[in-house]
Amino acid sequence: MFLSHDGLCSIGELAERAGLTVKTVRFYSDRGLLPEAARSAGGHRRYGPDALGRLRLLRSLRALGLPVREVRRVLDEEDAADRVLEDAVAGQLREVGSELAALRWREAGLRLVLECPPGDRADRLRLIGAVGAPPDTAALARFWRAWLPPRMPARATAAFLEAAVPQPPGDPAPAQVLAFARLYALVTQPCTGSGPCQPEAHKAPGSRGPAVLYAGLAQAYELAGAPLRQGLEPGPGEELDSFVDAYASAYGGRDTPGFRRLLAGQLADDPRIDRYWELVTEVITPPGGRPEPTPGSAHDWLFAALEAQTAEAA
């Protein structure tokens, strides 16, 4: 309770009790966040007893980093104050998380430039300067959309992109920042060469061919994950049968020795795709960590098993 005869206080007294500057209190008043109770004969602001508690709440909310518009919502929507405050704090947490992720990427990028040989600095500056912090993966998704079969259903495309586009690590090492920057440079380069930028195996007939192909490949890649983790050499088995069956089903054919020979010839190496998966492994694997299988490493393992089998049969 204020000690003045009318139970009100001046802006200076209110600021002193709240531990704020007069300028800050005036700022909140001018924006309607701290209503004044009256004006003195000389036109000076006067505040009621509830102003001190409201001002302290304002200070606490602003100390959490909430913008003025969110503070206004918490103060004005009294009936739903808890829900509004919860939503505002959750939103601020997400924003702080994004800022921290950006700072971690900037820190790793700075270390990358600082710790590399002087002769490499110009190239690394160019690479990391082309991507944001944290980086956006939209360019990687565009790369795959151009590479995938044109009749690929939206649901199948989304499932493939989820597996093929790596999420940048939240706390990257300099080597992971460099790998992502190289990955970004790779996918933003135009496809070169006289032929189409599509593998021959994508020319599956019918509107359902691409969907059947990639649904089957996803199953084969998952099966190949086990021998990859065990470090086993590529060879025949359930994994290879599932891999071949994916192509046979998409083409409307049968899994025969002749089909396997034909498929081995069609699945030619694509240096762009091989390099893509090499860099993905570097992006998602922390220093000293054990690489996890990717669709790329699973495909290579299965392709090697197919080549070995057809060569042996020949």
Rank of each mutant, 00 (worst) to 15 (best):
W277H: 12
L61M: 09
G119S: 15
L3M: 09
P286R: 05
G235H: 13
R126G: 15
Q266R: 13
P49E: 12
E307C: 08
R26D: 01
R72V: 02
Y28I: 01
S242H: 11
L223E: 03
A51D: 08
A81Y: 02
C116F: 00
P257N: 01
L14M: 03
E312N: 00
G65T: 07
L66P: 06
A204S: 14
F2I: 10
G53Q: 13
G289A: 15
Y47D: 08
Q92Y: 07
L58W: 02
G235E: 14
Y28L: 04
D120H: 13
F160Y: 11
Q167H: 13
P210I: 00
P134V: 08
F2S: 12
C116T: 15
V84Y: 05
G193K: 09
G129V: 06
I11D: 00
L103N: 05
L125Q: 01
R62G: 08
A90Y: 03
P295I: 12
F143Y: 15
E282N: 02
A101N: 10
R31L: 12
L279T: 00
A314C: 04
P196N: 07
R272V: 13
L228H: 03
G32Q: 09
L114C: 07
R73S: 12
A159N: 06
S242D: 03
P135T: 11
G195P: 00
S194P: 12
P49L: 11
V131L: 10
G12S: 10
I128P: 03
A133C: 10
A146T: 11
P210Y: 03
D241Q: 11
S207R: 14
L52W: 01
R62A: 14
R151Q: 15
D300H: 14
G97Q: 13
I284K: 04
P210S: 02
L302S: 04
E278F: 00
T21G: 15
L58N: 04
A146F: 09
E115I: 05
R142K: 10
T294M: 10
L85R: 10
L140V: 14
Y184Q: 05
A218D: 11
E278M: 04
S194N: 09
E70W: 09
R94N: 08
D255I: 04
T188K: 07
A156W: 02
L161A: 06
L14V: 00
S60M: 08
R39P: 05
L262V: 05
P149Q: 03
